[in-house]
Protein backbone atom coordinates (compact mmCIF):
# COMPACT_ATOMS: atom_id res chain seq x y z
CA UNK A 1 0.00 0.00 0.00
CA UNK A 2 3.03 2.25 0.43
CA UNK A 3 3.24 3.29 -3.22
CA UNK A 4 -0.43 3.89 -3.88
CA UNK A 5 -0.93 7.68 -4.02
CA UNK A 6 -4.63 7.44 -3.14
CA UNK A 7 -3.91 5.73 0.18
CA UNK A 8 -1.00 8.03 0.97
CA UNK A 9 -2.94 11.24 0.31
CA UNK A 10 -6.06 9.98 2.11
CA UNK A 11 -4.03 8.92 5.14
CA UNK A 12 -2.21 12.26 5.26
CA UNK A 13 -5.47 14.21 5.04
CA UNK A 14 -7.30 12.04 7.59
CA UNK A 15 -4.54 11.70 10.21
CA UNK A 16 -4.94 15.08 11.96
CA UNK A 17 -8.78 15.25 11.84
CA UNK A 18 -9.06 11.77 13.39
CA UNK A 19 -6.83 12.82 16.29
CA UNK A 20 -8.77 16.08 16.64
CA UNK A 21 -12.04 14.13 16.79
CA UNK A 22 -10.48 11.81 19.37
CA UNK A 23 -9.51 14.78 21.53
CA UNK A 24 -13.04 16.19 21.19
CA UNK A 25 -14.50 12.87 22.33
CA UNK A 26 -11.97 12.76 25.17
CA UNK A 27 -12.67 16.17 26.65
CA UNK A 28 -16.35 16.38 25.76
CA UNK A 29 -17.18 13.22 27.70
CA UNK A 30 -18.75 15.23 30.53
CA UNK A 31 -21.35 16.79 28.24
CA UNK A 32 -22.00 14.25 25.53
CA UNK A 33 -21.35 10.65 24.63
CA UNK A 34 -17.72 9.72 24.81
CA UNK A 35 -14.88 9.45 27.27
CA UNK A 36 -11.47 7.94 27.70
CA UNK A 37 -12.11 4.49 26.28
CA UNK A 38 -13.69 5.66 23.03
CA UNK A 39 -11.25 8.53 22.57
CA UNK A 40 -8.28 6.24 23.17
CA UNK A 41 -9.45 3.84 20.49
CA UNK A 42 -10.12 6.68 18.00
CA UNK A 43 -6.68 8.24 18.52
CA UNK A 44 -5.05 4.82 18.23
CA UNK A 45 -6.97 4.31 14.96
CA UNK A 46 -5.23 7.37 13.47
CA UNK A 47 -1.80 5.91 14.28
CA UNK A 48 -2.85 2.47 13.03
CA UNK A 49 -4.01 4.01 9.73
CA UNK A 50 -0.60 5.70 9.45
CA UNK A 51 1.11 2.37 10.17
CA UNK A 52 -1.04 0.48 7.64
CA UNK A 53 -0.40 2.94 4.81
CA UNK A 54 3.21 4.00 5.40
CA UNK A 55 4.47 0.68 6.76
CA UNK A 56 5.24 -0.55 10.22
CA UNK A 57 8.79 0.87 10.21
CA UNK A 58 7.47 4.43 9.84
CA UNK A 59 4.84 3.76 12.49
CA UNK A 60 7.50 2.51 14.90
CA UNK A 61 9.59 5.59 14.19
CA UNK A 62 6.59 7.80 15.00
CA UNK A 63 5.89 6.05 18.32
CA UNK A 64 8.72 3.84 19.49
CA UNK A 65 7.89 0.71 21.47
CA UNK A 66 9.91 1.90 24.48
CA UNK A 67 8.12 5.27 24.69
CA UNK A 68 4.78 3.53 24.15
CA UNK A 69 5.41 1.23 27.11
CA UNK A 70 6.12 4.23 29.36
CA UNK A 71 3.00 6.04 28.13
CA UNK A 72 0.96 2.89 28.81
CA UNK A 73 2.02 2.88 32.45
CA UNK A 74 1.67 6.68 32.64
CA UNK A 75 -2.08 6.51 32.05
CA UNK A 76 -2.63 4.14 34.96
CA UNK A 77 -0.36 6.32 37.10
CA UNK A 78 -2.38 9.47 36.22
CA UNK A 79 -5.55 7.67 37.29
CA UNK A 80 -4.09 6.32 40.50
CA UNK A 81 -2.30 9.62 41.12
CA UNK A 82 -5.61 11.51 41.19
CA UNK A 83 -6.76 9.08 43.88
CA UNK A 84 -3.59 9.56 45.92
CA UNK A 85 -3.77 13.37 45.63
CA UNK A 86 -7.37 13.34 46.86
CA UNK A 87 -6.17 11.13 49.71
CA UNK A 88 -3.54 13.71 50.68
CA UNK A 89 -6.10 16.53 50.42
CA UNK A 90 -7.98 14.90 53.26
CA UNK A 91 -10.63 13.02 51.30
CA UNK A 92 -11.13 9.39 50.44
CA UNK A 93 -9.30 7.59 47.60
CA UNK A 94 -10.66 8.94 44.27
CA UNK A 95 -12.90 11.41 46.14
CA UNK A 96 -12.69 14.24 43.59
CA UNK A 97 -14.55 16.72 45.76
CA UNK A 98 -11.51 16.84 48.03
CA UNK A 99 -9.28 17.97 45.12
CA UNK A 100 -10.48 21.60 45.26
CA UNK A 101 -12.86 21.54 48.18
CA UNK A 102 -16.02 22.29 46.17
CA UNK A 103 -18.26 19.68 44.56
CA UNK A 104 -18.67 21.38 41.17
CA UNK A 105 -15.05 22.14 40.24
CA UNK A 106 -13.53 19.18 42.08
CA UNK A 107 -15.68 16.62 40.29
CA UNK A 108 -15.03 18.30 36.91
CA UNK A 109 -11.25 18.34 37.35
CA UNK A 110 -11.15 14.84 38.78
CA UNK A 111 -13.24 13.32 36.00
CA UNK A 112 -11.26 15.07 33.25
CA UNK A 113 -7.94 13.87 34.73
CA UNK A 114 -9.19 10.34 35.27
CA UNK A 115 -10.59 10.12 31.73
CA UNK A 116 -7.26 11.45 30.44
CA UNK A 117 -5.51 8.59 32.23
CA UNK A 118 -7.91 6.06 30.70
CA UNK A 119 -7.49 7.59 27.23
CA UNK A 120 -3.68 7.58 27.40
CA UNK A 121 -3.56 3.94 28.51
CA UNK A 122 -6.11 2.74 25.95
CA UNK A 123 -4.37 4.59 23.08
CA UNK A 124 -0.96 3.14 23.84
CA UNK A 125 -2.26 -0.38 24.56
CA UNK A 126 -4.17 -0.48 21.24
CA UNK A 127 -1.11 0.80 19.41
CA UNK A 128 1.12 -1.71 21.19
CA UNK A 129 -1.25 -4.56 20.28
CA UNK A 130 -1.24 -3.52 16.62
CA UNK A 131 2.55 -3.14 16.53
CA UNK A 132 3.01 -6.48 18.30
CA UNK A 133 0.72 -8.40 15.92
CA UNK A 134 1.84 -6.70 12.72
CA UNK A 135 5.49 -6.76 13.81
CA UNK A 136 5.28 -10.46 14.61
CA UNK A 137 3.98 -11.09 11.08
CA UNK A 138 6.67 -8.95 9.49
CA UNK A 139 9.51 -10.48 11.51
CA UNK A 140 8.46 -14.06 10.74
CA UNK A 141 7.45 -13.89 7.09
Amino acid sequence: MKNNPVFRVAAKILFAPIILFGLYVQFHGDFGPGGGFQAGVIIAAAFILHGLVFGLGQGRRLVSARVNLWVMAMGVLIYGGVGVVSLFQGGLFLDYTALTGSVGSGQHIGIILVELGVGVTVTSVMLALFHAFAGFVEDHS
Partner: peptide
Protein backbone atom coordinates in the same frame (compact mmCIF):
# COMPACT_ATOMS: atom_id res chain seq x y z
CA UNK B 1 -25.06 18.89 42.26
CA UNK B 2 -22.06 17.83 40.14
CA UNK B 3 -23.00 19.99 37.08
CA UNK B 4 -22.14 17.16 34.70
CA UNK B 5 -25.04 16.49 32.32
CA UNK B 6 -23.81 13.11 31.02
CA UNK B 7 -24.83 10.68 33.77
CA UNK B 8 -22.94 7.84 32.09
CA UNK B 9 -19.68 9.72 32.62
CA UNK B 10 -20.44 10.54 36.26
CA UNK B 11 -21.30 6.92 37.02
CA UNK B 12 -18.26 5.63 35.13
CA UNK B 13 -15.65 8.05 36.41
CA UNK B 14 -16.98 9.34 39.72
Amino acid sequence: LLHIPNVVTTVLAS
